[in-house]
């Protein structure tokens, strides 16, 4: 596989949608060309046999870091909303949300 084939503009566009990032004209192609050599370096990791190696996501040898279930002062609504680009009546305001609800 050639370096350019490692990443197509269409794949960049799909990733941009996932990352909620509007691209400017021509950026999909440019980013694909710029990221392909990086992915080539990543592909070179395949030289290394990791079949019996567990992923290492966290460095800290620590486990069991907990906090007691005790309330601490909150910021309060004024400070929470201070940086909001738009707020009203103590709420953050965003354009009307369509589609499925949030919630966990």
């Amino acid at each position: 596989m050639s370096v350019a084939e490692l990443l197509t503009p269409a794949q960049v566009e799909a990733a941009a949608r996932l990352a909620r990032l509007l691209l400017n004209e021509g950026e999909a192609a440019a980013f694909a060309a710029q990221l392909a050599p990086i992915l080539a370096r990543v592909q070179a990791l395949d030289e290394l046999d990791t079949s019996n190696v567990a992923p290492l996501a966290r460095l800290s040898p620590l486990a069991n870091v907990l906090r007691p279930d005790e309330a601490r002062p909150s910021l309060g609504a004024d400070l929470a909303l201070r940086e909001a680009p738009d707020a009203a009546g103590g709420f953050f305001r965003v354009p009307r949300v369509l589609g499925e609800g949030g919630g966990a």
Binding site: A80, D86, A88, G90, F91, F92, R93, V94, R96, V97
Partner: peptide
């Protein structure tokens, strides 16, 4: 979603 033109968010 009560407001006509906006969604209000309470965190």
């Amino acid at each position: 979603h009560d407001a006509p033109d906006a969604t209000l968010v309470d965190l």
